[in-house]
Nucleic acid binder design. Structure first.
Lengths: 148, 148
DNA sequence: ATAATAGATTCGTGTTACTCGAAGTCAAGA
DNA sequence: TCTTGACTTCGAGTAACACGAATCTATTAT
């Protein structure tokens, strides 16, 4: 049976490496109550089983969509409450889906901007010259491609 | 001549509306020295001409790539110093272009995650049922699509 | 002419989400 | 036994704003 199989437990350090976040952040999240099924060993050390990792992964993703710690906590509480909170959870997720959509568009614009600048600097460094004695041109050479 | 044309000057309020940021943020940026050509009127009010708007727009974009206020300030100083700093500026921009690239990938992943969850909730709300008396299933129903 | 309103200013505190470091505890290896 | 290393708690620091009170000024209404 499942209960008889000892499932692997992960330390804070291991979890930090697995998800590319710091130990401090993990401590911070657990202290905020974002990982309800968190386990403590006899020396009070934090231990994560697969369920804990699932919660953490959910938190990381929703946070990546722009959700605050406070809302993550609220969402977690709703999950624990079960079926009766389905609608509210759905509405939260839809909201952050929309935010994630905007974030994606913005990220694309920012990348476009940065690539435009890189190209511009390459042009300059490859010999295309400006009248650098005129400060107006420094600014111009910095920003002329910003509207692309 | 250009010097004789009175160029339009914008107040903090106008600039805030134009760029969708708060007046507080604009004050914060100007106080940090991110807009070197900032103009003050006889009552000490902040006024932006086109050059100021260019600087601000540059700041907003680079910040969107992940650049900190400190680095924005440094980059601005390099711009003011002129040609001799081209290489360093280029390297900064390349660095943040790479970060912007990662940000875009991450934003896409987060959106995928959120859309998966939305779909999942729709399934549930449309009648697909789980054994909700078992808490393990609440968690499962929350997270089962996270790896897509 | 005075008064109220609207918008600007400075300055100082509050908030979020970490981030760091000190000080202490504990198990395991030389 | 002693040291190393990884864990703990707790408290303070940081970045990038966000907010509000107090004040000043220009314009409009009475």
């Amino acid at each position: 049976m499942k209960a008889l199989q000892k499932e692997k437990l992960y330390t804070v350090q291991e979890v930090a490496q697995m998800y590319g976040i710091t130990k401090h952040t993990i401590r911070f999240y657990t202290d905020k109550g974002l990982i309800p099924p968190l386990i403590r060993d006899e020396n009070n050390n934090r231990l994560f089983n697969q369920e804990c990792l699932n919660w953490l992964e959910g938190c990381i993703c929703l946070k990546g969509c722009g959700m605050s710690i406070k809302d993550l906590k609220h969402y977690g509480n709703l999950c624990l409450k079960g079926e009766s909170t389905l609608k509210e959870r759905y509405e939260m997720i839809v909201k952050y889906r929309d935010i994630a959509k905007e974030n994606l568009l913005k990220a694309q614009k920012m990348l476009d901007y940065a690539e435009c600048k890189v190209k511009h600097y390459k042009d300059i460094l490859n010999g295309r010259t400006f009248d650098n004695s005129n400060p107006a041109n420094w600014q111009k050479s910095e920003l002329e491609c910003r509207n692309n």
